[in-house]
Amino acid sequence: MLDDRARMEAAKKEKVEQILAEFQLQEEDLKKVMRRMQKEMDRGLRLETHEEASVKMLPTYVRSTPEGSEVGDFLSLDLGGTNFRVMLVKVGEGEEGQWSVKTKHQMYSIPEDAMTGTAEMLFDYISECISDFLDKHQMKHKKLPLGFTFSFPVRHEDIDKGILLNWTKGFKASGAEGNNVVGLLRDAIKRRGDFEMDVVAMVNDTVATMISCYYEDHQCEVGMIVGTGCNACYMEEMQNVELVEGDEGRMCVNTEWGAFGDSGELDEFLLEYDRLVDESSANPGQQLYEKLIGGKYMGELVRLVLLRLVDENLLFHGEASEQLRTRGAFETRFVSQVESDTGDRKQIYNILSTLGLRPSTTDCDIVRRACESVSTRAAHMCSAGLAGVINRMRESRSEDVMRITVGVDGSVYKLHPSFKERFHASVRRLTPSCEITFIESEEGSGRGAALVSAVACKKACMLGQ
């Protein structure tokens, strides 16, 4: 009897593995994704193909990295998701002549009506938060230079001027797309009239992360975010950046690689679950690469896999709870928690219980395998993109072996128990001629924006502006 049951459990697990095998990517698959990513990057950089390229390769006008001589107080704003952060950054000489960066910050959550109302409502709310922060720190009387981390696709015309191309991540505030974001912020500050600010720089969160990590390690020339969304930036040779005049030196390019796949480059790798996630998203047909990796989508992918296993009578005796059938019910943090389970399955059992399920031991094991399959594919897909960037940098610099540091931020990278190990191992397999160091950014977005502002202020002083 026991043997029969054991055989049935083994057969069930084997069927589960057959279904989950769809998520496995072979090294040849990853090399294919990497080569296609490089081709799209090239198209994004070139003037004649930029418009139709899915990977936009947006110039950021960040050319210099901090040298350690900029000092002063800077205000930093960070808008990239449902939370908005205001930070005071003091850049100065530390002990023994070292450079020191001290920060104080406060988080504000953005109400739904500000995210989806008008641009005026959104930026009025942001300036209200700045006003509140300055009151708390008794700094209303000071006109501070301000660095703005704005983590949406922007076409820069200068370091302090950028046109919002399109909202992502659930934002829909009308009247912002096609307009200068810094102008919208300046107008809102003017409307309030109770404080003055000098907006000197606007950067993407990947750029802010790279600059913040450069402060720790001067070989950091790539910034990457794996959180709600997924994106990367890197220092490109100016001669390859056709959208900006000049051939000397390097400029940081914001790849906006989340949109890779929007022209069909990933079609052969998309599964039924991916198509369902895409169809029910706020932007169907867009940001397809990001939807395979980002935390906004990972939990939902797992939920759809679990429903398939229920329908195949391989999980929960073929019956799903009402909660499990509800879109968004299986949160991405559950994926991390399930994979963090120590082996007694308590954590998995508790999560499934909150979803109205009474799982068996085998159910718990199957749910864990589903989570591992989805998150491992995410790590491997992400590795193909980064390997594409790094191999490109090595080739354009004609280096036999390139040493490089990548600064990384984002909740999936930082909080998932195995993502970074799987990701690092896969990147290294795909970049055999590179020695890569990964560092995690601390308060990256805010500190990085302030350091970019410090560079901009120093330049302005040198130019006598």
Rank of each mutant, 00 (worst) to 15 (best):
D4K: 11
R5N: 12
R5L: 12
R5W: 13
R5S: 10
R5V: 09
R7K: 12
E9Y: 13
A11G: 14
A11K: 14
A11R: 12
K12T: 13
K15F: 14
K15R: 14
V16I: 12
Q18M: 14
I19S: 13
E22K: 06
L25S: 10
L25W: 06
L25C: 10
K31D: 02
K31T: 13
R36I: 09
R36H: 07
M37L: 10
M37T: 09
K39R: 13
K39M: 12
K39A: 14
E40C: 12
M41Q: 10
L45I: 01
E48T: 13
T49M: 07
H50P: 03
E52T: 10
V55W: 05
K56H: 06
L58W: 14
L58G: 01
P59C: 06
T60V: 06
P66R: 12
E67G: 09
E67C: 05
E67A: 11
G68F: 05
E70K: 09
V71M: 14
V71A: 15
V71H: 15
D73I: 08
L75P: 07
L75Y: 03
S76C: 04
S76G: 15
N83W: 06
F84T: 04
R85W: 01
R85L: 02
V86G: 03
M87N: 06
M87H: 15
M87V: 06
V89E: 02
K90S: 15
G92V: 06
E93A: 06
G94Y: 04
G94D: 09
E95Q: 13
W99G: 15
W99K: 07
K104S: 11
K104V: 12
H105P: 08
H105A: 10
H105S: 15
M107I: 08
E112Y: 14
E112Q: 12
E112R: 09
A114L: 12
M115L: 10
M115T: 05
T118S: 10
M121L: 05
M121T: 08
M121S: 07
M121P: 03
F123D: 03
D124C: 05
E128R: 07
I130W: 05
L134S: 02
K142S: 06
P145H: 13
G147M: 03
G147H: 01
F148T: 03
F150I: 06
F150N: 02
F150K: 03
S151T: 00
F152G: 03
F152I: 01
F152L: 01
P153G: 03
P153K: 08
V154G: 03
H156Q: 07
E157C: 07
I159L: 11
D160E: 03
D160Y: 03
K161P: 01
I163M: 04
I163T: 02
N166E: 06
N166M: 12
T168D: 02
T168N: 04
T168F: 01
F171G: 01
K172N: 13
A176E: 07
A176C: 11
A176N: 03
G178P: 00
N179G: 04
N179T: 14
V181T: 00
V182R: 03
G183L: 04
L184R: 00
R186D: 14
D187C: 00
K190D: 05
R191P: 00
R191I: 05
D194I: 14
F195C: 00
E196F: 03
D198R: 14
A201T: 04
A201G: 05
M202R: 02
M210N: 04
Y215T: 15
E216S: 15
H218A: 15
G223S: 05
V226Y: 05
E236T: 00
E237A: 07
M238L: 05
Q239S: 12
Q239C: 10
V241N: 00
V241A: 08
E242R: 10
L243F: 07
L243G: 05
V244R: 00
E245V: 14
E248A: 10
G249Q: 14
V253Y: 00
V253W: 02
N254M: 02
G258E: 01
A259D: 02
F260P: 02
F260H: 05
F260W: 02
G261K: 00
G264R: 11
E265L: 07
L266T: 05
E268T: 14
F269G: 05
F269H: 14
L270N: 04
D274F: 06
R275P: 00
D278T: 13
E279H: 14
S280R: 14
S280Q: 10
S281R: 04
N283D: 05
G285A: 10
Q286L: 11
Q287Y: 13
K291D: 07
L292H: 12
I293L: 08
K296H: 13
L301F: 13
V302K: 07
V302C: 13
V302M: 14
L304M: 08
L309K: 04
L309A: 15
D311K: 14
D311T: 08
D311Y: 06
E312S: 14
N313G: 11
L314A: 10
L315H: 03
L315C: 14
F316P: 10
H317K: 13
G318K: 06
G318R: 13
A320Y: 09
S321H: 10
Q323F: 13
R325I: 09
T332Q: 14
R333L: 14
R333G: 14
F334Y: 07
F334G: 15
S336C: 11
V338L: 10
S340M: 13
D341A: 08
R345Q: 07
R345E: 11
K346Q: 13
K346F: 11
I348A: 10
N350C: 01
L352C: 06
S353N: 13
T354R: 09
G356W: 07
L357T: 07
L357I: 14
T361P: 13
T361I: 08
T361S: 13
T361F: 09
T362S: 09
D363Y: 03
C364T: 09
I366W: 08
R369Q: 13
A370Q: 05
C371F: 00
E372Y: 09
S373E: 13
V374D: 01
T376I: 11
R377L: 03
R377T: 00
H380R: 13
H380I: 09
M381W: 00
M381T: 05
C382Y: 03
S383Q: 06
V389E: 04
V389D: 04
I390M: 06
N391I: 13
N391P: 02
R394C: 07
E395W: 13
E399G: 08
R403V: 07
G407A: 10
G407V: 12
V408E: 04
G410E: 05
G410V: 01
G410H: 01
V412S: 05
Y413H: 05
Y413G: 03
K414C: 15
H416V: 07
P417T: 08
S418N: 11
A425C: 09
S426E: 09
S426W: 11
T431L: 10
P432L: 11
F438D: 03
S441E: 15
S441R: 05
E442G: 05
E443W: 12
R447Y: 08
G448S: 03
A449P: 02
A450C: 00
A454N: 01
A454C: 10
K459Y: 14
M462A: 12
